[in-house]
Every structure is written in C-alpha cells, then in structure tokens.
Simulated assay, not measured.
Amino acid sequence: MATKRMIRCPKCGIFNTDKEYCTNCNTLISHQKKVEIRAENVKQQQVDKAIYEKEHPNLAERLKKHPFWLYRIAGWFLYSTIMIISTIGAGLAWFIAMVAAG
C-alpha cells in the first residue's frame, strides 16, 4: 500500500498530496525534483566549462599550432618547460609525503 505524502508549500502554505508543484501557486515543492534540477545544472556547468576550455586554449597550446615555425618551436619549448616543472613539483610533493609518513 503506497503512502501519501502531504507536503506544505513554503510559499503559500497550502498542503499538497504527492505533487511536484504546488496546486495553488505552482512553486516547486518536491525534494527529489529539486535534486534532479541541481544535478542537471551541475552537468550543464561542466559542459560549459569544457566548451570554454576547448574554445580558449592556453598560450602554449595556441603557439604549438601557430603557422609560423618559430612560434611553433617556442610553443613546444614552453609546453615542455611547463611539463618538466610540473613533474619535478609532483616528485617533490611525493617525496615530502613519504618523508612525513615516516
């Protein structure tokens, strides 16, 4: 036997039975629907962020694809430098964590 849920609208105070929206003022009152909407918004924000990053690459990526060969070399040099510094930083962080762990 299914139980009926009585949900009080926070806006107008009318009690609604098993509804997602208030029958009086059409305010969203379903907790499950609110969670679904928030999840959709988070997914859309992630998609928007990925599209932005694809359309606006960083300096090294733009230089690596430049038509002039000298700029391409500078882009690859900059990219390689960033990767080497990141690798050294990750190695140092790992080493410090191992020393701290005992």
Rank of each mutant, 00 (worst) to 15 (best):
A101K: 14
I84K: 08
T81R: 10
F68E: 15
N26Y: 04
T3N: 12
E53N: 15
V42F: 01
Y21N: 12
W76K: 15
P57A: 09
N16T: 05
A50W: 00
T23S: 09
W76E: 15
R38K: 13
Y71S: 08
R62L: 15
K64A: 08
P57N: 11
H56R: 03
W69C: 02
Y52T: 01
K65M: 11
V42I: 14
E20P: 00
L63I: 11
K49P: 00
I84E: 05
I51D: 12
T27F: 03
R38E: 15
S30H: 01
D48N: 10
R5V: 12
R8D: 07
R8V: 13
T17M: 14
K54Q: 07
Q46G: 08
L70S: 07
A97W: 02
K65I: 04
L28D: 01
H66I: 05
W94I: 14
I51M: 09
C9W: 04
R62P: 00
N16D: 09
I37A: 07
G75W: 08
L63V: 02
T23I: 07
I37N: 08
A2G: 11
L78A: 11
K11W: 04
G102F: 02
Y71Q: 06
A50G: 01
Q44W: 01
K54G: 15
D48P: 00
I51A: 14
K19V: 01
I14F: 11
L70C: 05
H66R: 06
Q45C: 03
Y71N: 08
A90Y: 05
I7E: 08
H66E: 11
W76F: 09
A50L: 13
C25D: 08
W76S: 13
K43W: 01
E36R: 11
V42K: 01
S80C: 12
M6V: 09
S30G: 11
I84Q: 03
F15M: 09
K34S: 14
K54H: 13
F95R: 13
Q46L: 14
S80G: 15
T87C: 04
Q32S: 15
I88P: 02
T87K: 10
K49M: 13
V35K: 12
H66V: 06
S86G: 03
Q32K: 13
G102Q: 04
A90E: 12
N26R: 09
P57M: 10
Q32Y: 03
H31S: 11
E53D: 14
H56L: 04
A74M: 14
K11M: 07
I96N: 05
G102K: 08
E53L: 13
A74I: 04
V42S: 00
